[in-house]
């Protein structure tokens, strides 16, 4: 039986983020949290494997203790157990830290043949935690996976990767890590029985002391402001002269360049 780990991140629901009109500062005061949408596809893929091949699935997250609510949410989506790696200092971690913490939490603690991550997170979308975790665990990694199949006899997976210049199909021996794209599946909406059943599943807590040394951040966030979109309020007529001036205006703004034409 396959042992699968699926990693997920608890992120601020972007629909709840407001911006201060004057300073463009983001306001999180009333924002709710959710499982990063990309990671929902990772969880779904793990559960699909569980249903098709009889795998056991552990959902793992790194977060401050206040994020405890995420566990039932994740467990209602099908995993058998959850591993909650938590410490009050686990706030705004950069990808290198998250991958170190995950590696330390997983190593020797959770048996795995396959780790499934979302391609990126809803908030940062750095696309680094997956590959960095694979590197730290010394296992192969396939990113941008849009289709995943398991060759049961040969103990490997076949991953179709959607790349900028085409599709690539790779055969990866297990244990391995894959990061999946949203197109790979449609996450289920948990049924009521699944929601109620989540409370009965096993949760493992892993504390900072159990993890060994965690490196400091490589990144420092100086400022986050909302993107501003101003309308120029320029009107163009529909005649030849109007079209010409519209095209000229686009050149002037740098939207079009001579190279395009």
């Amino acid at each position: 039986m396959l042992n699968i780990i699926t990693c997920f991140k608890w992120v601020i629901d972007e629909a709840d983020i407001k911006a201060d009109a004057a300073t463009r500062k983001l306001l999180f005061g009333r924002a709710g949290y959710k499982i990063s949408a990309y990671d929902r596809h990772a969880i779904e893929e793990a559960v699909r494997f569980q249903e098709q091949h009889g795998a056991s699935v552990a959902a793992v997250t790194v977060a401050p203790p206040s994020a405890k609510k995420c566990l039932k949410d994740a467990l209602s989506r099908g995993p058998d157990s959850a591993c909650f790696v938590n410490d009050p200092s686990f706030l705004d971690l950069d990808p290198s830290q998250t991958s170190s913490i995950l590696a330390a939490a997983v190593r020797g603690r959770i048996k795995f043949d396959l780790i499934i991550c979302g391609e990126g997170s809803d908030d940062l979308y750095a696309q680094q935690v997956g590959p960095a975790l694979a590197e730290r665990l010394g296992i192969p990694c396939a990113t941008c996976v849009s289709k995943l199949t398991y060759a049961e006899d040969e103990k490997h997976i076949i991953a179709e990767r959607r790349l900028d210049d085409g599709m690539e199909t790779v055969l990866v021996p297990l244990p391995a890590l894959v990061s999946v794209l949203p197109g790979i599946n449609t996450p289920r909406i948990p049924t009521l029985k699944e929601v109620l059943g989540a409370a009965k599943k096993e949760i493992f807590n892993v504390a900072l002391e159990e993890l060994g040394d965690i490196p400091g951040p490589y990144l420092k966030t100086v400022e986050v402001v909302a993107a501003a979109m101003d309308r120029r309020g320029i009107r163009f007529s529909a005649d030849e002269e109007g079209v010409r001036s519209a095209v000229n205006a686009l050149f002037k703004e740098g939207v079009l360049s001579q190279g395009v034409l």
Partner: peptide, 18 residues
């Protein structure tokens, strides 16, 4: 409760989709 919140979120997603 967390369950009630999850149920609400589930119905909202269901409605958005179907």
């Amino acid at each position: 409760t967390e369950e009630h919140q999850l149920i609400r979120a589930g119905v909202r997603e269901f409605c958005g989709k179907f």
